[in-house]
């Protein structure tokens, strides 16, 4: 029983990180119809930025905030202006292909410019474990859970409870109607891209200590975010967290009780089942086909 709870706790912790990356992914889709296949590289880049700032002597918190700003400018503003805006009018697929190209560019550019070696990354939380009622929980898992979970919930509250947040949702649901209502659609869309940049930096901070910083570290987290987003519901922000946690927990349980070899396969099987049986996702609403 202790094992089980321990596995679930660390699974939820891992899952919330997937959820953070997945959340950005769904937000982008909602706000601009962008399926961002470079989401994994969006997590990798701030990790390298943080290493850079740590390298010049900044403490971790400062490096994180600096990386956040870099990420919001580069992966938020620049990404939107240079790639998304000019391509949006062509429809979904050219944009998808451009993000695939972007993922190749970022990954290979880092490999060519920085190198293919892995680098260590300091954990934001102390090492070690503590026991509650006989169940051992590590500080890292608890910290991740609190930080990532807190951010997701805060973002959800922001979207639901504030004027700006509601305006953003309105833009996502019906761009034309939002415009008629006097909402500055361009600005709202830009906010979403900024939020995605910041979320990527958070995911990088949490995932880098265990994954190690490396040019291809985004492959796994990118796929997980992608699966989590679709499992939860592509067009529902709440779905991202659910999808992420579901993947994290199931992976841990299957890895321990069934076979570690197919741990990575868990997300896939759930994902394929969802696509086949409930394509709009667990929490999603079906979108009618538009021509």
């Amino acid at each position: 029983m202790g094992d089980f709870v321990q596995l679930v706790v660390s699974g939820i912790a891992a899952g919330t990180i997937y959820g953070v990356a997945a959340l950005g992914f769904t937000l982008l889709w909602q706000a601009s119809g962008t399926i961002n296949f470079a989401q994994g590289e969006f997590v990798m880049l701030p990790a390298f930025a943080m290493l850079l700032f740590l390298g010049i002597g900044a403490p971790l918190w400062l490096a994180f905030f600096a990386a956040c700003i870099v990420s919001m400018l580069l992966l938020g503003v620049a990404f939107k202006r240079i790639i998304v805006d000019p391509l949006l009018r062509h429809g979904v697929i050219p944009l998808v292909i451009a993000t695939l190209g972007l993922s190749v560019f970022v990954k290979q550019g880092i490999k060519a410019g920085v190198g293919a070696l892995a680098y260590p990354f300091p954990s934001a939380f102390p090492a070690g474990q503590f026991a509650i009622a006989g169940i051992e929980v590590s500080y890292a898992d608890l910290g991740t859970l609190l930080l990532a979970g807190g951010i997701v919930i805060a973002l959800q509250l922001f979207l639901d409870r504030t004027m700006t947040g509601r305006a953003m949702q309105a833009c996502a649901q019906n761009t034309e109607a939002a415009r008629v209502l006097g909402i500055d659609v361009r600005r709202m869309t830009l906010y979403v891209f900024l939020i995605n940049g910041a979320l990527a930096a958070v995911a990088a901070l949490l995932i880098a200590p265990s994954y190690l910083v490396k040019f291809d570290m985004g492959e796994t987290i990118g796929l997980k975010a992608f699966f989590a987003a679709i499992i939860g519901g592509f067009n529902q922000t709440r779905g991202a967290l659910l999808g992420g946690v579901l993947i994290g927990v199931l992976e841990n349980l299957v890895g321990f009780y069934v076979s570690p070899a197919y741990k990575e396969g868990v997300a896939l099987v759930v994902f394929l089942l969802v696509i086949l049986l409930r394509p709009e996702g667990l929490l999603g609403k079906a979108e009618e086909r538009k021509v």
């Binding site: 000019p86 391509l87 695939l100 190209g101 560019f105 970022v106 290979q108 550019g109």
Partner: peptide, 21 residues
């Protein structure tokens, strides 16, 4: 060009989507 080849390829894909889809 070594590793820069694929990086350049990535840029080319993006540029192509913008100018010559």
């Amino acid at each position: 060009m070594q590793n820069w080849y694929l990086a350049a390829f990535g840029v080319a894909v993006i540029a192509l989507m913008v100018w010559l889809p």
